[in-house]
Amino acid sequence: DSCIQFTRHASDVLLNLNRLRSRDILTDVTILVNRQQFRAHKTVLMACSGLFYTIFTDSHKCNLNAISLDPKVDPEGFAILLEFMYTSRLTLKESLIMAIMNTAIYLQMDHVVDTCHRFIKSSDP
């Protein structure tokens, strides 16, 4: 008996999910951050964020097709974290690192928060 593991399968699946997002195929929720709107797949949001996991496993909220985030959330920070969810790449612009980290705290993405902390500490002169 043998087993063939396609080592790049996970990243290929994620790339296709991102293609579906950019073509708005089977996206099932709009995330409202201040005046900006982001279409996404609930399953991807839940897989990556503790906050969205809690929201979409709540029987009263799982059928919502629009979610407004707290107005303190920075849309640019959210956009970068949404991109991370669909690409595994976190773009850290110096001017946005705090907004990204605060948004990751809000979205309950603890591993990203820890990584941002370490990045800030390592880049402190």
Partner: peptide, 21 residues
């Protein structure tokens, strides 16, 4: 992403969804 200094993070990236709640 050419030209950007890329740091490889080998640790866990996201939470783990429990087998059941």
């Amino acid at each position: 992403y050419e030209g950007v200094n890329t740091i490889k993070e080998m640790g866990r990236s996201i939470h783990e969804i429990p087998r059941q709640d």
